[in-house]
Design a binder for these strands. Structure first.
Lengths: 205, 205, 205, 205
DNA sequence: GATGAATGAGTCTTCATTCAT
DNA sequence: CATGAATGAAGACTCATTCAT
């Protein structure tokens, strides 16, 4: 195990600023659409100074994805074998919905990346993500075997939770365009909808 | 009102080739990531020839979106006031899933566009799309009022159908990465899952 | 065998202009020291137009080296097994000296490349060049065996001819600095010197 | 006249390290191709620290050339008016060959510089170098007048010695490419060749 | 209709040098 | 003495678009 590289306060601050700016820009424009100029401006740094901290545009993107993947998977990790199955899953969906509301940039960052074939994160998908999903799918399968959930495919259940919740971040502009002129209120409606929806769909007969 | 310009067979063929090539490229790389070179090569035409048929890169993209929007909304349009509500909605979801399987490029084209704020299609969203959704939401509301569907928010129901079905096209690489080494079989599983899911969630008590 | 790509007159002209400009610039500044701006200016073309004809700066350099290698080796190739050994070798040296006088840019191009480790031409050196030298060295060895030349190492003889003649191109500025204020007259002196020199050194006892 | 600034041991050591690193890098990549980063890394110092000791990249290069010029000319300086002319000249060539073998970096440093027009050392060439060569050429001329050497142009004789010996350092990669798979043995062969060669060419009739 | 040729405006990246401590 | 941080200037290369035929 390697000692964590000691970072000065300036480094800490600038790296943070860069990653935050990059999240802004990458999530809105995708990797190719984003420019270092935009990121530099958003971070309040000069372009070469960006490259003093990160070797390349791609390195920034990769660092960002790596940093956020954990955060992104936390709700699924929190699925508790000891909890009540129906409640656990509904809670999971609601937590994901909260993240879509509170961290839409992060959601769109991943959406952009994956829609375009995940060229910079495929290994993470086929590695740690698959492992985690396999583990939780096994848990759900066990719950079903114990008759504590209705019979459903655990993988597609998880996919549906991702889809229905991230939709509110990734397709935000469409959602708002259709629900106009409502404001953010729709997240409460969505929560009610999804809550009822999943409860009904997975409650054991 | 002007008569539609008479198109020769060559024009017809080339425009088709361009749009098909553009669909390939834009859906995979997004607007900014795509280059006219790629499109020209895929279409088997020279770059200036592309611009003979379309005024600009953006014009190709816009034409493509416009052309596909109708196709894309057909399943929703087909929601039949005269049909059986539950069956209609389940069928709608399944038709959308079929489209995700058979026309993933189209799905990703829209996904790319909307994730990045729909800069070239926002008017369509706030216009024709909103109208159509409003209409069908009213239909669903009516069905609920007649007690032929369980009480749910019609807008979020529609969003959830979009999300859960398009997910299999837009996040295809992630789905496959997690379900590996299965092939395309997962679409059958998804159909079964979604069918049961929606039937359960919307059937009237 | 592939048909040679048909080139239009414009292509012919521009490619020539680029290669000639590149020879100017690369031979004077080396690969790293040369800039596309300089080459473009010398060729009377815009920088992107350069890259319309050659994929990259390196491609120009490689094309140039490839084009000139043949020319560069012609004098050695002309070493005639049927001729008089001493005369053949003296003539070879003199022809090389003529080339150093008439094509100093070409000489310096190779000098620059080889001094820095020949990163872009090593395969040519270890391939065609080595083969040609091996062949001619064998010829010299045969001549020696027939007692028509004095006993000398053929490889080092060839190296010495390269060195002594190309010196007048590669180290031109030094030669002129020392011989100042003479003009080009020194090439005649050099020819006399080398002629006598080699004749004496290789004539059979 | 000012007293030479007293240097601490640290300064002495660092300046040495910088010059040695610079020799490595400049001789391999030329002035433009070399970067301060490479030199700093090779010297084990930080980049700003380099510039504490030398005002600029160019200053390092100039210091290096100046430092080595003396060393480089020592063999010629050693040409002894009291010695035996033929032996003196053959020894000179052999000493130069030893230097090409033992100090190839130094040779390539000058080669790089001179091939590119000697922009940073032209004054040295036209000054001290020319003077020394003039002096030794006069010596050779005197020897010839005394009939102790064959009649040859002393300047071109000196050039040929430079050329044939430095060739083994400057064009090392080509020499090795052609003589492959021999190792360093070729220096012994070269010494034998040059020794016989010059002895024959300059011995009085 | 079609295309070879050309380019202006970017876009990422490098690098010698300076600043601040 | 030493270095982490920062940058202006330049450099290679890209690309949508235009020109000329």
């Amino acid at each position: 195990m390697q000692a964590p590289p000691q970072r000065t306060r300036i480094q800490e601050k600038n790296i943070s600023a860069i990653l935050d700016a990059a999240l802004d820009v990458f999530s809105q424009s995708g990797f190719r659409g984003a420019t270092l100029d935009q990121i530099a401006k958003a971070a309040g740094l000069s372009k070469p100074n960006l490259l003093y901290y990160f070797a390349s545009k791609e390195a920034i993107h990769v660092a960002l994805l790596a940093e956020l993947l954990d955060l992104w998977l936390d709700p699924l990790r929190a699925l508790d074998p000891e909890g009540d199955p129906v409640q656990e899953i509904v809670d999971y969906a609601l937590r994901k919905l909260d993240m879509a509301r509170d961290l839409p940039r992060e959601s769109r960052l991943f959406a952009n990346e994956i829609v375009q074939g995940a060229p910079r994160i495929l290994d993470k998908i086929e590695g740690p993500l698959k492992e985690l999903v396999d583990e939780k799918a096994a848990l759900i399968t066990a719950w079903i075997a114990e008759n504590r959930l209705s019979k459903t495919d655990p993988y597609h259940l998880i996919f549906s939770i991702w889809a229905t919740t991230q939709h509110y971040a990734d397709f935000d502009v469409q959602v708002r365009g259709i629900l106009r002129p409502k404001g953010d209120a729709h997240f409460k409606d969505a929560a009610a909808f999804l809550s009822a929806f999943y409860r009904c769909a997975i409650s054991p007969p």
